Amino acid sequence: MLRTRMTFTGCKSRAILAGCVLLMSVGCTTLYRNHGYAPTDDQLAEVLVGVDTRDTVADVVGPPTAGGASNGGGFFYVQSRFRLLGPLEPKEIDREVVAITFDADGVVENVERFGLENGNVVALSRRVTQDNIRDTTFIRQLFGSIGQINAGDLLGDG
Score class of each variant (00 low, 15 high):
residue 53 T to F: 06
residue 91 K to Q: 15
residue 122 V to R: 14
residue 76 F to I: 10
residue 115 G to M: 03
residue 105 D to K: 14
residue 41 D to P: 04
residue 109 E to P: 00
residue 19 G to D: 00
residue 77 Y to S: 03
residue 58 A to D: 01
residue 58 A to T: 02
residue 90 P to L: 09
residue 96 E to C: 07
residue 63 P to E: 13
residue 28 C to H: 09
residue 120 N to C: 00
residue 70 S to I: 00
residue 121 V to T: 13
residue 108 V to Y: 02
residue 115 G to Q: 03
residue 93 I to W: 03
residue 44 L to Y: 04
residue 13 S to V: 15
residue 113 R to S: 10
residue 122 V to I: 14
residue 124 L to Q: 09
residue 22 L to D: 02
residue 119 G to K: 11
residue 94 D to V: 03
residue 76 F to N: 08
residue 43 Q to P: 01
residue 32 Y to H: 11
residue 69 A to H: 09
residue 126 R to H: 14
residue 83 R to N: 10
residue 70 S to C: 05
residue 38 A to E: 03
residue 29 T to N: 05
residue 94 D to R: 07
residue 71 N to V: 10
residue 68 G to F: 05
residue 82 F to E: 10
residue 107 V to T: 07
residue 108 V to G: 04
residue 43 Q to N: 01
residue 14 R to D: 13
residue 29 T to W: 08
residue 77 Y to P: 05
residue 39 P to V: 04
residue 126 R to N: 13
residue 51 V to L: 13
residue 128 V to D: 12
residue 59 D to W: 02
residue 110 N to C: 12
residue 74 G to V: 10
residue 92 E to C: 13
residue 75 F to D: 04
residue 57 V to D: 04
residue 78 V to P: 00
residue 92 E to I: 08
residue 26 V to G: 02
residue 112 E to C: 06
residue 29 T to Q: 08
residue 29 T to V: 10
residue 72 G to K: 05
residue 109 E to H: 06
residue 56 T to D: 06
residue 23 L to S: 08
residue 105 D to A: 15
residue 11 C to L: 15
residue 49 V to C: 09
residue 114 F to I: 03
residue 18 A to I: 11
residue 14 R to Y: 14
residue 26 V to M: 06
residue 40 T to S: 04
residue 123 A to R: 15
residue 61 V to S: 04
residue 67 G to Q: 09
residue 28 C to Q: 10
residue 12 K to Y: 14
residue 109 E to R: 11
residue 96 E to D: 07
residue 53 T to C: 03
residue 24 M to T: 05
residue 16 I to Q: 07
residue 93 I to F: 06
residue 29 T to F: 07
residue 11 C to D: 08
residue 88 L to Q: 14
residue 121 V to M: 12
residue 25 S to A: 07
residue 50 G to L: 12
residue 112 E to S: 13
residue 84 L to V: 15
residue 93 I to A: 06
residue 12 K to G: 13
residue 89 E to M: 15
residue 70 S to A: 10
residue 123 A to L: 14
residue 51 V to M: 12
residue 77 Y to I: 08
residue 99 A to L: 14
residue 57 V to N: 05
residue 124 L to T: 09
residue 73 G to A: 01
residue 42 D to V: 01
residue 73 G to N: 01
residue 39 P to L: 06
residue 87 P to A: 13
residue 60 V to S: 09
residue 122 V to A: 11
residue 40 T to V: 02
residue 23 L to I: 08
residue 76 F to P: 00
residue 87 P to D: 13
residue 91 K to V: 15
residue 65 T to H: 10
